[in-house]
């Protein structure tokens, strides 16, 4: 498999980095306050380097999805800045959005569309030409073993197939930064392993990955660096080993349990008390 590249002509010259050393994602002092007064993000700062496989871990409601939504235009930040490869992602977001592919946590497919249309329309939203859309759609349907279903409406798909289609859709416009928000939630083991294998492969080809997941062993295996987010704040960041040592525990999972104040659930402690 050749390195995935982004052809500027396909998407309107919008994907070249603004500067050669620009981080893939640079979040600075990001605050998201909802009208109810809830502060979902409290001055979050985070930088992900090009080519990194970065994990964002935290309990439910910690602010992971809010951060992702702010980076992809699905939520309006209250203050702070977000840049994608050096391009502003909040006010003048055109270039930044071209570089980002989002596979959201929800299976947010349009029931009216077929699989082919889902990918074709997505490519169109990102300015891809018809011929390129057609070729890319075929390529992705093949790669995700969805070709046989290409003319069926998305509502007829199984949960696992919907998950695959969502990942294919996120990759359709050849993003340089792929954001995966709990991509394996509710999928079977076989598909989960396939997805990870696939995502690892495109990361090796140069695509930067931002991943949120509740599967800590996998985050430990896949991610170069990880940040823990809790109650809207980044509370720790580093390699899995660095995090384990920062929390003075033996594994990423134990570091996470310590973060959320549930160290009593550590496998070592549970095994010790089991008969």
């Amino acid at each position: 498999m050749g390195k995935m590249q982004f052809d500027p002509d396909i998407a309107g010259n919008g994907c070249a980095p603004a500067s050669p050393n620009a981080p893939a994602l640079d979040v600075a002092d990001l605050v998201k306050r909802y009208p109810t007064g809830t502060e979902a993000l409290k001055s979050v700062s985070l930088a992900i380097q090009p080519g990194e496989f970065f994990g964002l871990l935290g309990p439910n409601g910690a602010g992971k999805s809010t951060l992702i939504h702010c980076a992809t235009g699905l939520a309006q930040p209250t203050s702070g800045s977000i840049e994608v490869f050096g391009h502003d992602a909040i006010d003048h977001y055109g270039h930044a959005r071209l570089a980002v592919g989002l596979a959201p946590q929800d299976l947010n497919l349009d029931w009216f569309l077929t699989l082919e249309e889902t990918l074709d329309f997505h490519g169109g939203y990102f300015g891809m030409r018809k011929r390129d859309r057609r070729e890319r759609t075929k390529e992705l349907l093949d790669a995700f073993s969805l070709t046989e279903k290409r003319e069926e409406r998305t509502r007829t798909l199984s949960g696992g197939m919907k998950r695959r289609l969502i990942l294919a859709r996120a990759l359709m416009h050849r993003p340089r930064l792929l954001i995966l928000d709990e991509p394996t939630a509710g999928v079977d083991v076989e598909l989960r392993l396939e997805l990870w294998q696939y995502v690892q492969r495109i990361n090796e080809e140069g695509t930067t990955i931002l991943l949120t997941t509740h599967y800590l062993e996998e985050a430990e295996q896949l991610c170069d660096r990880i940040a823990f987010i809790n109650d809207g704040e980044i509370v720790a960041r580093g390699t899995p080993d660095e995090l384990a040592s920062e929390y003075d525990v033996g594994s990423l999972e134990d570091a996470y349990l310590k973060l959320v104040g549930r160290s009593e659930l550590s496998r070592a402690k549970v095994e010790a008390v089991l008969p």
Partner: peptide, 13 residues
Amino acid sequence: MSAGQALRPAAPA
């Protein structure tokens, strides 16, 4: 899904 299957870069328009 075939993880080993190449995803080709965009052909020049």
